[in-house]
Design a protein around this nucleic acid. Structure first.
Lengths: 216, 216
DNA sequence: AGGAATGAGAGAGCAGTGCTCTCGGCAGGG
DNA sequence: CCCTGCCGAGAGCACTGCTCTCTCATTCCT
């Protein structure tokens, strides 16, 4: 099983998720194609394994980056998290696509397996804000929260034991999608060719701007 | 040719871009598979046609939405644009994936064909800000712009004839990726199951927050 | 008017894919 | 000693993108 995941990961270095071939994995493993099905139910199951694998790797790198920046300002910590996500995404575009690109066809990631690793990034972001809030460094954002959203936030706050003001938490969810969106734009080259000559600097500036929206 | 694009569009209603099959298009067209290659060089060429088709459609809808909101506040216009993108994405998830999902394999969209329609959305966003700026409703954002980024912004500003302050323009690019990122999160279901019960309301609130970062 | 050139579809075929089914060997346990 | 479970091999089905060649009708030119 470990070999299968490892080979799958290697295949993704040179091909996109859509091109990932069970037969190629079998060949690399030195085994006939049908033998793979002894261990992996089908192609989607292999993708699930690789998704968890990728989430774990990028999650660990982001957490390490945030940890290394723990003595800097909260904004700098957010930037560190974004930079770590960006670095991983540019280094592993196919695996990044596996996480944040087009979902595979009728396939819904089995929540039980992917939920925890899949939330590590946003948990890291919210953690930065939560710590900053505990230190009194977070300004309470003013704004209305629709009732439905308020209930969602309440549920999330209790699940993760957050004392962050609700509006700030809502903004943090926006920050999450914004950071992922920005990195996705760069990894997938959607800014257009030659639009940005210093994308790393742009991301830093962008995150600094976003930090204001979450109360920093 | 029109029939081919139309059928391709229909196929995308029930399948993802990766699953789009030239043979299926040929069948639907009532023709043998090899005949398709008289009109379309290969699968990538068909995807290019569909990308342009999709960009044009969503671009037109966003522009119409912004036009309808022209008498409201700039923030409301931004929200209208975001809502239009969201509505189209949820209505046409596969075509949305074609534009903002995983890029197809070794395929690079021929810039000559896709650039103009592909920028209509961001042009609409920047247009809102430019008009608001002309009316004196945009606060100049303070912040440093790295030299490399400054040159990029200068080039963009002259190309599109913008008088918007450069820092605001930089933030607008961030707004662009943030809005697309937020809609992508929803279309691809990346917020996690049941995280948000009122995603439309959340997007409105999110865009309102982002509006502050661009000087509104 | 007759022949050449062009366009377009049909069909066969190649290499590859996911996946299923059946078979044969090989080991450990009652 | 035999039986049961595991595991790989092989064949096969239906599908894909793409190429090549053949045929046929239409059109154009002399």
């Amino acid at each position: 099983m470990r070999d299968i995941v490892r080979i799958g990961r290697e295949q993704l270095a040179t091909s996109t998720p859509a091109q990932l071939s069970l037969r190629a994995v079998a060949r690399e493993l030195g085994v006939v194609s049908s033998a793979i099905y002894r261990y992996v139910k089908d192609r989607d199951a292999l993708l699930t394994l690789l998704i968890v694998d990728a989430y774990d790797e990028v999650g660990a790198e982001v957490e390490a980056a945030v940890h290394d920046a723990r003595d800097e300002s909260p904004t700098a910590q957010l930037q560190a998290a974004a930079r770590a996500l960006r670095a991983w995404g540019l280094r592993e575009p196919s695996r990044f696509a596996l996480l944040h690109g087009t979902p595979v066809p009728g396939y819904a990631a089995p929540a039980g397996l992917t939920n925890e690793p899949g939330t590590r990034f946003v948990v890291a972001l919210v953690g930065i804000l939560e710590r900053a809030h505990a230190e009194g460094r977070v300004r309470e954002v003013d704004g209305e929260v629709p009732a439905a959203l308020g209930a969602d936030l309440e549920r999330i706050a209790t699940e993760y034991g957050l004392s962050l003001p609700r509006v700030n938490l809502a903004r943090a969810l926006g920050l999450w999608s914004a950071v992922v969106g920005a990195v996705t734009f760069e990894v997938f080259d959607q800014y257009g060719p030659g639009t940005l000559t210093d994308p790393a600097g742009f991301l830093d500036a962008h995150v600094a701007g976003l930090a204001g929206t979450v109360g920093l």
